[in-house]
Amino acid sequence: MKKILLSLLCLTTLCSLAANSVTSQSTNNLIFLFSAYLVLWLGFFVYVIFLKTKQKDLQSEIEQLQVTLDKS
């Protein structure tokens, strides 16, 4: 639910920006502007996914420890 809300907000912002820019003067540089912000968001997402994977690994390691503890 939160995710949907977030992506909607994001999409609205981008769309209004696009609409705003198309109506006014030169648009040839906009691709650079978009790619810079794309790099920013992609960078954050990739890092968050990386952190999340680490967390999952930890979780499974803890579960494994629990199993070995129970056995002994």
Partner: peptide, 8 residues
């Protein structure tokens, strides 16, 4: 998507 969802 799963990791992103739970991270959020």
């Amino acid at each position: 998507c799963m990791p992103i969802c739970s991270a959020i």
